[in-house]
Amino acid sequence: MEQGRAMLLKVEQVEKSYQSGAARVAVLRGIDLALAAGETVALTGESGSGKSTCLHLCAGLDRADAGRIAVAGQDLSGASDATLARLRRDTVGLVFQQFNLIPSLTVAANLAFQARLSGRHDADWAARLADRLGLSALLDRYPEQLSGGQQQRVAIGRTLAARPALILADEPTGNLDEATGDSVLDLMLELVAETGAGLLMVTHSTRLAARLNRQVHLRGGRLA
């Protein structure tokens, strides 16, 4: 962590478990993590190690059983659903493995969607993003008319268009072939650097993880 930068994400002794049949399975057993503005961190681990759970907790999509998570100074522990929704809308940007575009909106509308939702839509910035992401010729198409790589570029553009302070990406290249995944990640890292956002990216590829500032590894519910 670099000194002097604002702390965007602080995770302290967070625990989370799930009920699985009759048994309760502990997924996170007291993890600590911190991420500053402009920093990129890869969260790696084997399947089922709790990477996605950790990301969901940081995004306020789920609640921790114990411990504390703060995003941009906002403690998520006791926050209401409305507060968590506002946080996701205004501060956090999410990139999913499954893209999660809105199928009934065009590429242009999808790109602008979160920025408009948070009231930070900037048409010039959206146009530049579309250009950088190679989507300018596809703006009138619908998601179903795009390839997987193109869809993920739209999903990344949607997140960056809103200029969030913290980007949480859950295996953003997991659904793409290696070459496409590399080019998408290149673009994402480039644009993240441009916007000065912090990035926490879940991946199980050590090759991709190596391209970020820092790597943390989850094993047995704890950060190694």
Binding site: D81, A85, R86, R89, N100, L101, I102, L117, S118
Partner: peptide
């Protein structure tokens, strides 16, 4: 359903 989940993930409160 997928759209609802995306909207909520992007910050639209459940009540809204």
């Amino acid at each position: 359903r997928a759209m609802f989940r995306t909207l909520r993930a992007l910050g639209v409160p459940l009540r809204v």
